[in-house]
Design a binder for these strands. Sequence first.
DNA 1: GATGCTTACGATACCCGTAAAGATA
DNA 2: TATCTTTACGGGTATCGTAAGCATC
Lengths: 310, 310
Amino acid sequence: MNFQQLRIIREAVRCNFNLTEVGNALFTSQSGVSKHIKDLEDELGVELFVRKGKRLLGLTDPGQELLEFVDRILLDASNIKNLVEQYSKRDEGQLTIVATHTQARYSLPKVITEFKKAYPKVHLKLHQASPNEIVTLLLSGEADIGMATEALADVSKLDSFPYYSWYHAVIVPRGHPLEKVQPLTLKALAEYPIVTYHEGLTGRAKIDKSFLDAGITPDIVMSALDADVIKTYVELDMGIGIIASMAFSPAKDSDLSLINCEHLFGANTTYIALRRGHYLRSFAYRFIELCSPRLNETTIRAGVVLPPAR
Amino acid sequence: MNFQQLRIIREAVRCNFNLTEVGNALFTSQSGVSKHIKDLEDELGVELFVRKGKRLLGLTDPGQELLEFVDRILLDASNIKNLVEQYSKRDEGQLTIVATHTQARYSLPKVITEFKKAYPKVHLKLHQASPNEIVTLLLSGEADIGMATEALADVSKLDSFPYYSWYHAVIVPRGHPLEKVQPLTLKALAEYPIVTYHEGLTGRAKIDKSFLDAGITPDIVMSALDADVIKTYVELDMGIGIIASMAFSPAKDSDLSLINCEHLFGANTTYIALRRGHYLRSFAYRFIELCSPRLNETTIRAGVVLPPAR
DNA sequence: GATGCTTACGATACCCGTAAAGATA
DNA sequence: TATCTTTACGGGTATCGTAAGCATC
């Protein structure tokens, strides 16, 4: 048994059991991949893959159980690399953040500016992705820190920590009749076409649930992945917008006006998530602390989940 | 980085950094060991060992941190071997139990008889050791299941489960005046020389504490590792004995009489301990279940610690 | 002087990639 | 037929053990 064999097992699963693809992914030949699998199966004395003729279709039961350990071995191997770098290059290295549009655009710029100042030698990679993609990237080890409002808190192999809480707000073209409605109600909103976020993004679930609970069917004419797109179409008068309140800038969005609606959709919590067991460099912990001072290295290592901040 | 290198790192620590010994332990040459360490340090770019000239003295800080991951990787590697055997030879294999004299002699014979009947093909190894040795053997992976009254429950890397509770009893030569003392008191015991267990064994701590709390200094003339030795010397009239009550057999110990003293020293709990994260074959779980029906595979996997049984 | 570590060197085994052949869709 | 896997084979590399050279105690 060697590490290359284990990498191949893991990659085979990720590549849906296409060994040619595995070869490419690991920068080696497909024949070598094939042989390694065979050698390992011979050594262990068990078939790890379900085969139909020559094609691999999936994992056998022992293969499935084995995969858990393989994953952890490879995780630990990468942890070793990280931890050793921590000593040889204390303030150098790479940090990969993966966040949704909302976080990348509105909450992270300030943090990243500060971080860059404190750790100029750290190569910071910021990926933008959907909540589900964020989960995948964290679990595969391709990203160190994930940030999103959705999905993260439900995954057992992730540790997630409340980052901050926020509310939705309504945006309308300046002079829109809704500006005068006091107090704002779901019923009043539902009288206009609505532009808001896509399903599974930035608290969209809360919006849907609020309308559903009230027995009102909103006319959602368009859903977008980010607030910039929503604002664009609200400016074009396609409807009123519902966005995360921090996405509104009075200066830049001077054609629009923001209407508070904290009472309508409830609070959302954005989470910072880490892969459980993944070794983080000290500057990664510092990054998180810059996001929220309550989340220091000790707290995070303890895995304690604190109540969300306001 | 390969597995041999990791095995060498781990073994170097176990062998007190004597690389010649490591070579012998791993059945390879000392020069190879030396080179492997150098190669790994070169690859990682960090010194893992503190050196004085050519001699190794200990681990550096990164080496210490690395060791944790190395241990887990090698644990997982052995888990893989075990789990795969579970499929290829369901009811065959090896099971290593390590227990104190008291358990090996008085509580295990019945269990082992039953187990042998159910799993005739499993090679059962029973080691006898002190509580501290039991901890070491479990942590090094040399034993699968440990049993003792002391030490086990305090080790964080072990999962320990209450096996059964028991009481001490006093043994005296037949016709001894203590037979008539009703009720038996610590003070009455302290008037005779006492033969009992060694420190750190079979509830000796409870005996000492009871006397200490009562402000009485017992005259312990001899301490032994097991009840058989204690009984021998009580028969020779060296003093009265305090032993675990299950160590007395009316038939075999006809020269002695047993005096109940549950009220004097309190209950002891014997624990079954496993190395956390160590993969156990299904027959190992069955063995534990034979010890105590409450400890089935599900309960143990959940790591739930139940209150001790009576 | 005995023990322990490093380096050099040759034999062996292992790993990789190319190429050809066979299986599957 | 195109895609994919297995097997065979040759070149390269890594690993291992012996032996010699040094450092440490």
